[in-house]
Design a protein around this nucleic acid. Sequence first.
DNA 1: TCTTATCAGATTGTTGAACAATCCTTATAT
DNA 2: ATATAAGGATTGTTCAACAATCTGATAAGA
Lengths: 231, 231
Amino acid sequence: MSERGSSDDYEETRPIRVRSSTAEWAAAILRRRVTQGGLLPGSRLVEDELAAELEVSRNTLREAFRLLGHERLLEHKLNRGVYVRVLSPADVADIYRVRRMIEGAAVRRPDKDPVSLAALRDAVADAETAAGKGHWLDVGTADLRYHQIIASLLGSRRVNAMMAQTLAELRLVFHAMDPRALHAPFLPRNRDLLALLESGRDAEAEHLLATYLDEAERLLLAACAAAVTPI
Amino acid sequence: MSERGSSDDYEETRPIRVRSSTAEWAAAILRRRVTQGGLLPGSRLVEDELAAELEVSRNTLREAFRLLGHERLLEHKLNRGVYVRVLSPADVADIYRVRRMIEGAAVRRPDKDPVSLAALRDAVADAETAAGKGHWLDVGTADLRYHQIIASLLGSRRVNAMMAQTLAELRLVFHAMDPRALHAPFLPRNRDLLALLESGRDAEAEHLLATYLDEAERLLLAACAAAVTPI
DNA sequence: TCTTATCAGATTGTTGAACAATCCTTATAT
DNA sequence: ATATAAGGATTGTTCAACAATCTGATAAGA
């Protein structure tokens, strides 16, 4: 029934559906498959097949599609079906414009929440542990968490939501890259940035973040352009 | 069939549906009703009634509900129905956190697009014309357009989308206030801000914007708190 | 050969009816 | 007055059907 071996297979049964609709449950499963790479960008999602596999009706599945389409993880082409979003280089550049805006504002903000700083330390530690074991996918997860926490310094539910969506979208490109080449360069910088934040050297932190984002963008743009122009 | 006299009645027939699904068409109509005040916050949207009125099936209508729920214009309570969102003071405060972040970043950005500056001039002129005629709702529309253009200075599709959604949400509170009291104070400031932007005095612009947003937030928070605590 | 037209198959878009699950209100009993 | 139970109303979800549209292959024409 459900494809085994894929990393999101655990708990695909319905305990999550304690207090949410079937559509949201289906959306949650698809969201995980997309972000974790079980469904690669460009894949087509056929209504009949998926509905049968998830054991929901086509109508319910279509409600889930609408949700994920709005999150920009799926692309809905009228009369042509639903596809996992394929990011263009322009999308990557745009995502980094958003990241600069959000994370820049967060780093610049004066009094940082100590709880968030502690959470940042955890994320850095987790990333380094995972790196030590060679688990580069986990490093990526910890890295995204790190930046989500950075955004949360602004203390805004809506900004948190924007950031989460933006990072989920960005993750679509990750699967086009070697995870080690992608994450290794930023491991020490996350620690450096945290140190600057903790000691209140915000101007330096802002500068480090800027160069950080510039380089990450360059890396992903390259990978993305290569994936778009394989021939 | 459709309630006559409501301000969004024109063109509710289906010319818009040139290349979009029925669900999106229904969502567009509901979105307009909500943002233009035809449907007030707290109103309940009953599936059967609305489906009959819009002449779409319940399933299609539910797809539209999902879209607008994701835009935070409607609130979906499981097994209890769909309601036009009611913003709490905390929501208003959060929206203004977002506005400060986005518009602040936009104003701070060095080289402004001349086309956008021209569009800002138009918006200011439209607002002043409407104010002269006493059309305060149109003033509000022009004002929102003004700030949407401000955001567009960042040149990011995603930021534009975030801003559009945020302003649509904010508009929910507008209906709880006298439009003149809400918009009149900001008419001259929009012009002043534009002048500062055109002459490149970005620091002053940033400061003016900050005080602008602070005062607008205060006004709306008051109205919002009064609406929440009528007894 | 290259283009255009046609056609069948497959998939999506949308509907209407049906029924279960849940909520809300009212009536009843304690 | 409080608690419980019944009933109606609305939502949640499914199913089957058909129309609309796309896709690809085949056939006809330049």
